[in-house]
Amino acid sequence: MNLTGAAASQRSPGSAMEAKHKLKLQRMRRFKANIPLLIMFIPVILFYLIFRYAPIGGLIIAFKDYNFYDGVINSPWVGLKHFETLFSDPRTLEIIRNTLLLSVLSLIFGFPVPILLAIMLNEVRHMLFKRTVQTIVYMPHFFSWVIIAMMVTTIFSLENGAVNHWVESLFGKPYEFLYNEGSWVAIFVGSGIWKDMGFSAIIFLAALTTIDPSQYEAAGMDGASKARQIWHITLPGIRSTIILLLILSMGRVMEVGFDQVYMMQNPLVNDIADVISTYIYRTGLQGAQFGLTTAMGLFESLVAFILIFSANYIARKFNEGLW
């Protein structure tokens, strides 16, 4: 107490002013440096306000009877009418079910595949082989769904598809892969996994490089088998990456990519292949039912939001949260 008092009294009024001046100068310098940064940032702010936040405000038409003449602001309020319609119509309930079914199946079967692929690639000692495999399996990610959907229909088509060629020679008659709901779902989920497994594996490969190789050596000395090494060293080593990506993919559970469904669906499997995104496109944009489909969109966004938050909440319990 005494000491600080003495120190304060020793400080001359001049040096206090100097410190103040210095602080002011520092603030000035910071402000000056901020000017070009702020100018640069203006287009970014405009973009986020116009194309990210204004649509969020536009969600109010989910509670309105939107018509083109009155616009977003002046259209009459209808309360929860659209939500009542959505949740009482068996057709829209079916669409919500389809969306959940397809995306949950894609998540369950699709999530482990890139991890396995990364672990397998990590075990390859032959560099040329590894590099070739990587180059080729990353590629489908960069192709549009038009191309993938066309490949899939070519391969599984009834008349001259390669798969039905074999099926026919084995069982005598071809199978309608694309027109049966079960096999269509399998092909849908499978093609999604196939397209992105390589690219999604990159992130796990990166995580694998952070594992200390001496751990494997030590385990090998102790006679641990490959399977045990993978289970006890590799998987724990990439645990946080796995959890991080799992949280992120939870946010996408309500989302079935429009391009893929739109291009792979056909009238015979419509009862299972019609999802929220195609419904919003068809009923909202083509059928001009903006209020109703915005309600569907809001429902989708909210569920995704809740899912990603609860996933993060659970992950935080294990000290692996995203934020």
Partner: peptide, 22 residues
């Protein structure tokens, strides 16, 4: 603040119809 405001748009969006109207 800006970073948070941007990240928020990754987990919650207005969706197709409001964007289309804009």
């Amino acid at each position: 603040f800006f970073t948070m405001a941007m990240v928020f748009t990754m987990i919650f969006s207005g969706g197709l119809i409001p964007t289309y109207l804009i």
